[in-house]
Design a binder for these strands. Structure first.
Lengths: 115, 115
DNA sequence: TTAATATATAAGCATATAGTTATATGTTAA
DNA sequence: TTAACATATAACTATATGCTTATATATTAA
């Protein structure tokens, strides 16, 4: 299969971003399911601002997109990005994040307010 | 095709290493051809110790191996590594480093001593 | 053994990064 | 309009990173 090429510098920027355990896990989760910040908060042992900052970096490179729905802002992988193919290929070497997805769905943080 | 999986933390470490323009270019070059330090010195605008330090990081993770031949130490990709498949897949998204290879072969630093 | 050469290591420095806490913004519902 | 909530941004700090220069090590040839 012919892969879309990315100039070295841009590719390095992407890899540096994904070269963080938290962000790589986020992207792996987003491959399976969109998520809002409060859902990520359930599975990462860090503050809400940290999570927002990681997501912002992913967004700045165009790897993820966001969509507000009421209180929540849902993040998802941006399949329109020229980097999407690279992301997909990398994720094939990373285990599926089933445990974390279960954790999210069990705690179901967006249901707290009864909506 | 079934891809060999790498735990998230290890994958993140690899991506972080490749998330540097110099190292990503080195690996792309090594995909085409083994190189010694003095050859890399021809194509990267930095000191010899910097180049050695980058190669050491790649070696520490097992991505490259080295082989001494006389004065020179030749580096090559370690195709035995469990990370090799990931590396290959990433490199499919990075342009082939033909220019740099030409540059190396033109200057031919290992011929200086007339061996 | 000594000189020349290729590479590695050590030490130091400037910048980048990932986290924190405090605060601001934006949305919804009373 | 105000309160409650989700998320974002700002400011700060500790550590990691990538480079430099100086020096050490290893190999070869005279």
């Amino acid at each position: 299969m012919l892969k879309s090429k990315v100039v070295v510098e841009r590719a390095a920027n992407v890899l540096k971003l994904l070269g963080d355990k938290t962000r790589l896990t986020m992207v792996a989760i987003l491959k399976q399911r969109e998520c809002c910040v409060c859902e990520f908060l359930e599975v990462f042992d860090m503050s809400q601002p940290s999570i927002s900052q990681h997501l912002r970096k992913l967004k700045d490179l165009g790897l993820v997109k966001e969509e507000r729905r009421g209180h929540w802002i849902y993040y998802s992988l941006n399949s329109q990005s020229d980097l999407y193919g690279l992301i997909e290929d990398i994720l094939e070497h990373v285990p599926v994040q089933t445990e974390k997805i279960k954790q999210i769905e069990k705690s179901n943080p967006t249901l707290r307010c009864g909506c």
